[in-house]
Write a protein that binds this DNA or RNA. Structure first.
Lengths: 344, 344
DNA sequence: TTGTATGCGTTATCAC
DNA sequence: GTGATAACGCATACAA
């Protein structure tokens, strides 16, 4: 029976159809208990017949704030960020909020554009994994009053919330694991160093190496141009090209995508994993466990990261006594076949 | 200098600060050419100083429609859908629209909830890969006036837009490829059959099989409970358990996740791929090409699917002469090592 | 219990 | 070139 006159029916039309006033319809919507059963039923019937749908923009304009959160992820091609997003969504669902998921793809201008749009939407909070935590448009956006929470990156300053995982520690445990398994020469595969996560993981690796008095040259850095499978494959190529004497028997990759690429190259080239090359990835995305040779990886609490970020943003948005908080999680090593957990 | 009095400044406050009327500020925003340079600069300075940000809800209320599109995907854990989403986003970006990305996770009630929310948001159009194309809430939502486009599933009826890929054809070319490579016995791995995509791919496989007069029993159906890596692994287990005489030398999986799981099991069990077991996947997600044994897969034009869906929704939303359209793409086989493209 | 009036921030129409 | 004003749909304070 929906009257498709071109525009959706409003409370006013529902009121007319039900023979009540606009205010009563609004009451049915927002405080049903205050309306008598008979009129309420009449109104509800009218809403059903007209196909009434609340107009969220009007509610929002009236309320002054939206009922949405936003997440700007760094790389839509990396499942890690989708898992973080899932965590955010679960927290948002509990609070009955929508989530805008955006993807900067590592582009600073796309990030800025998304931020701008989200500010205009008056989202309750913006969670983002920044391209560059120091970029001016972040500080600028923060001054606009919308809570901004850094995800997977600790803020440089104490004047904003952030949730991160200790990447230096992650680098340490990855290398410690390889050392425990008796490896003498290790390659760190990852780049560019402009990415904070890469820098920190490398730093952790070097710290352990130095602390144990290993020769500096035995921790080789194989830089990559990006954190992708293709770059991992290319790194494998370069690794294979090294003279056997200098070639590391183990690789620690800055993320699982690189590790998967490296693994693919190894298998294709007939290099036995972990026998001739042990591999440790980072993030523990589902595809790491699903690889032909299941990947040892440094697990980050992906969903928890998202959930916590959402909670912090929400607190900042609604709690006047909010104190900025820098949450830091600890990564954990998940040992699998790629470093010799099982024979294969 | 941003005055953080708690609420964001409005055009009215900008007008006051610049010493002009509200209408002039609006003109600066929407038709700068009609404003004199000097006043425009004065207004712009005021906006910058106050940190003015347009309120999208107010614009939207005024305009009657939002500047957003939505995509409700079926399985957030499957990269295929994220690639579709990326296609949608690229089309949306061209039209200067935002995209809400939601995930039903295969749950009919979550899908319904998302639809409801999106209707309230007055999005320009809803693209979705339905849990069940025949579910009543879809028809219900369609009657609300918001364009709904089915993605990766052809509509049962002609009264709505849809974009899909010919899954029956996809099933055919997968099996034809295996037959060309000399396989006599093939397993179809996939389920549940309540999923239309699975049904159609299986049907295509059976069609070719019958047309070529192959013994029905030689096309074995290994049903799975879901389209996941874990289920693929489990199917591998069952496959390995078959007596050698009946065991197929090739498997066609209903999607790449299953294929990846199957591959993992094979490699772990020392089954040579493709020597002892050839594998064909479906979707050609990036991880298929990145597998240890690169997977042969049936490619769907994922991004194109998304882009087309977005275009159709937008046309339906804005063009009064809109005609519903059922776009159907053709899948293509991408042959790789898992069916013996290269020695390994 | 129900009805009336006001304002949220923006845009567009009309005088000036 | 600029300013006043109405309207979008809803929620609420207040009047009846």
């Amino acid at each position: 029976m929906t009257a498709r006159n071109g525009r959706a029916p409003s409370v006013k039309e529902v009121a007319a159809a039900a023979g009540v006033s606009l205010g009563t319809v609004s009451n049915v919507l927002n405080r049903p208990s205050v309306v008598s059963t008979s009129t309420r039923e009449r109104v509800e019937r009218a809403m059903a017949e007209l196909g009434f749908v609340r107009n969220e923009s009007a509610r929002q304009l009236r309320a002054g704030t939206s009922r949405a959160l936003a997440y700007v992820m760094l790389d839509g091609g990396n499942p890690f960020f989708h898992d973080v997003a899932a965590g955010i969504e679960s927290a948002a669902e509990d609070a009955d909020l929508s989530v805008f998921v955006c993807n900067s793809g590592g582009g600073i201008e796309r990030e800025a554009k998304h931020l701008d749009r989200l500010l205009q939407q008056r989202v309750q909070g913006i969670l983002l994994t920044p391209v560059d935590p120091g970029a001016p448009h972040l500080a600028e956006a923060a001054r606009r009053g919308t809570p901004i929470v850094l995800v997977d990156r600790a803020g440089d300053t104490r004047d904003q919330c952030s949730v991160a995982v200790d990447d230096v520690l992650g680098g340490r445990i990855a290398v410690e694991h390889l050392l425990e398994r008796g490896h003498q020469r290790v390659a760190f595969v990852g780049g560019p160093e402009s990415v904070g996560q890469v820098r920190d993981r490398l730093r952790g690796a070097r710290e352990v190496w130095a602390e144990l008095g290993r020769p500096t040259d035995d921790l080789l850095h194989l830089p990559t141009g990006a954190l992708t499978v293709a770059e991992g494959r290319a790194a494998g190529e370069r690794l294979a090209g090294l003279p056997a004497r200098r070639r590391p028997g183990a690789a620690f990759c800055a993320n699982d995508l690189l590790a998967l690429g490296l693994l693919q190259h190894a298998v294709g080239a007939g290099v036995h994993v972990p026998g001739e090359l042990a591999i440790v990835g980072y993030d523990d995305i589902d595809f790491a466990a699903a690889a032909a040779v299941p990947l040892t990886s440094v697990r980050q609490p992906r969903q928890e990261l998202g959930r916590t970020a959402a909670r912090l943003a929400l607190d900042e948005a609604t709690n006047p006594q909010h104190r900025h908080e820098q949450a830091m999680f600890a990564p954990a090593l998940v040992a699998r076949a790629s470093t010799g957990l099982t024979r294969s």
